[in-house]
């Protein structure tokens, strides 16, 4: 049944997609004056089996490997491509639906068609059967990705749980000074929350706040832990480290205040906005720190609020 569905989908797509969506632009062309002896080098170097022949802006013919082999077999003198090329080239217009191209390939048995702009008749590109297959596969992949995402969004994990109280708990361990892996915890948390079918805006706020906090662990501490507690009504994130601690908590909350080292700033971070951004993303935030002992950041993001705003 799934296979039938896919075939139906492809049939729809070949009416939807246009020639210009799958053709290859920047075509390699030759002039009718180019000698046949040159053609072999061009075909081989560019790994193509045929190419349009263009004079000025105008398409005057097409020359293929077949033409070249025929010329070789007849052991003729070298001559300009113009004498051996196929004139009366079958072309397609870039705005035509793919189905038309498919039918033409079927009827005429050609390996390729030149694609022209309908107004100017200028050569825009070339299309082969391979391009059509590739274009369809690409489109199917995009659609599949969209569907897959939607499927995740449609799940509502908590609604399927029958209990008086349900709590999910996740822990992520963050290494200090490991800038390369910065954001891995926030990324894993984000993917997990999405899978639970939570509102994307809520997930985004949690992800941004957690990422900022994870960055702080990496930039300023030797590492720490991120603990996340998910309940049907709210998500709580607690980020803890064991030092060095913040000397003045009020001061670090001031926008633009930063003690970040230069290398961090060069990477686009450490502008003294992180904690403010965490505050902005959360419904409740608490920051406590003891010098030499460590820092604890707790934030709460309400799920019900977000669900409400989605319903409105």
């Amino acid at each position: 049944m799934a296979a039938d569905g896919n075939i139906g989908k492809i049939q729809e797509l070949i009416y939807e997609i246009r020639v210009c969506d799958v053709m290859k632009g920047n075509v390699i062309t030759v002039s009718p004056q180019t000698p046949m002896s040159e053609l072999r080098r061009i075909l081989r170097e560019k790994r193509i089996s045929g190419t349009p022949v263009v004079e000025g802006d105008k398409l005057v013919g097409i020359i293929s490997l077949d033409d070249f082999i025929r010329w070789m077999a007849e052991r003729e003198q070298d001559c300009p491509i113009g004498e051996k090329m196929t004139r009366n080239v079958q072309t397609l217009y870039s705005d035509e639906p793919l189905i038309l191209a498919v039918n033409r390939f079927d009827q005429l048995g050609f390996g390729r068609f030149a694609v022209l702009d309908r107004k100017s008749e200028r050569l825009l590109g070339i299309i082969t059967k391979g391009d059509i297959v590739e274009g369809l596969l690409r489109k199917l992949e995009i659609d599949y990705y969209k569907e897959e995402n939607q499927r995740h969004e449609e799940q509502h994990f908590f609604e399927d749980i029958l209990a008086d109280k349900s709590v999910l708990f996740f822990r992520y361990d963050v290494m200090g000074h490991d800038f390369k892996r910065a954001g891995e915890s926030a990324s894993r948390l984000k993917a997990t929350l999405r899978r639970l079918g939570l509102n994307p805006q809520i997930v985004r706020r949690v992800a941004i706040a957690t990422y900022e906090a994870e960055m702080n662990l990496i930039i300023y501490t030797d590492g720490g832990r991120i603990r996340v507690r998910v309940q049907p009504h709210e998500i709580a994130v607690r980020v803890e480290d064991s030092g060095p601690g913040i000397p003045d908590v009020d001061k670090v909350m001031r926008p633009g205040y930063s003690t970040a080292p230069e290398w961090v700033r060069e990477l686009g971070f450490g502008a003294g906005m992180g904690l403010n951004n965490i505050l902005k993303c959360s419904d409740k935030m608490d920051l406590r720190s003891a010098l030499g002992k460590g820092t604890r950041l707790s934030i709460c993001i309400s799920i019900e609020e977000g669900a409400k705003s989605e319903a409105n």
């Binding site: 390369k180 910065a182 994307p200 990422y211 990477l267 686009g268 971070f269 003294g272 906005m273 902005k280």
Partner: peptide, 24 residues
């Protein structure tokens, strides 16, 4: 070029133009 600004002010689905190319 300031990721802090991107995190604070950019909206879902938008295009970021930047001169930074690190994985972050």
């Amino acid at each position: 070029d300031l990721m802090s600004d991107v995190l604070a002010f950019m909206k879902s689905g938008s295009l970021l133009l930047t001169g930074l190319t690190n994985p972050q």
